[in-house]
């Protein structure tokens, strides 16, 4: 499952290939869409949730409200079913889906005129930590590289070579996870990559109400 981008995406993977999947792009309805999508995917496969042995969730970075929907859903399934919950960086799913074997960038929309981004040597190899920046501030770091993800499309002047995929797919995320788990790797804890401190307006010191 991944809800860290406008895509609400769910896939069921049997270790070899994707059995069923669902992706809907709607940045404002992660909460409404996720559970019915889980049900559709399982239903299509003719399986119940109790058939699932491992859960994988995109940990972001991504807009927080949507991101938390996937994380809390995965954690709850894990607790109710007693199965492990693994985290993967959302950008890694987009990278894996690209299939590139040359250096490139993944950039998603971080809103507020910023992108979440990372650089990769190939589809499986991330070489920078996920970060959040204004596109103009990273122009030198991404110059000349092809870029995938919705962030690349939004800022064409910094990412002139924008390519597919635009949106995250849980099928790619699950495929990457299956590959890594089969290789005996440990994935991330299913904890959010926020990358920004919470917005917190500290109220100004007590405001005098008496007109001076």
């Amino acid at each position: 499952m991944d809800t860290a981008t406008p895509a609400v995406t769910v896939a069921l993977h049997d270790g070899q290939s994707v059995v069923a999947q669902s992706s809907q792009v709607d940045a404002r309805r992660h909460g409404e869409l996720l559970l019915p999508a889980v049900h559709r995917v399982l239903d299509e496969a003719g399986l119940g949730l109790d058939a699932v042995t491992d859960l994988v969730v995109g940990v972001g970075p991504g807009p927080y409200t949507g991101l938390r929907v996937g994380l809390v859903t995965a954690a709850t399934f894990g607790s109710a079913l007693g199965v492990p919950v693994h985290g993967l960086c959302t950008l890694d799913g987009l990278a894996y889906a690209s299939g590139f074997d040359e250096p490139f960038v993944v950039a998603t929309d971080a809103r507020r005129k910023e992108v979440y981004w990372a650089r990769y040597d190939d589809a499986r190899t991330r070489v920078t930590e996920p970060a959040v920046d204004r596109p103009a501030d990273i122009a030198d770091l991404v110059a000349g590289l092809p870029a995938v993800g919705a962030g690349a499309r939004l800022y064409g002047e910094v990412f002139p070579d924008a390519r597919e995929p635009e949106h995250q797919s849980a099928a790619a995320l699950a495929g990457l996870a299956a590959e890594r788990l089969a290789a005996g790797e440990t994935l991330l804890d299913p904890l959010p990559l926020y990358l920004r401190r919470p917005d917190a307006q500290v109220p100004k010191n007590y405001k005098v109400v008496t007109p001076q």
Binding site: G31, L35, Y64, R68, V72, T73, T76, F77, A80
Partner: peptide, 19 residues
């Protein structure tokens, strides 16, 4: 609070579905 409610609603739905 919308974002706060959503965490609980998502968890409740997941529990209800899983159980």
């Amino acid at each position: 609070l919308a974002g706060a409610l959503l965490v609980g609603v998502s968890a409740a739905k997941a529990y209800a579905y899983a159980l």
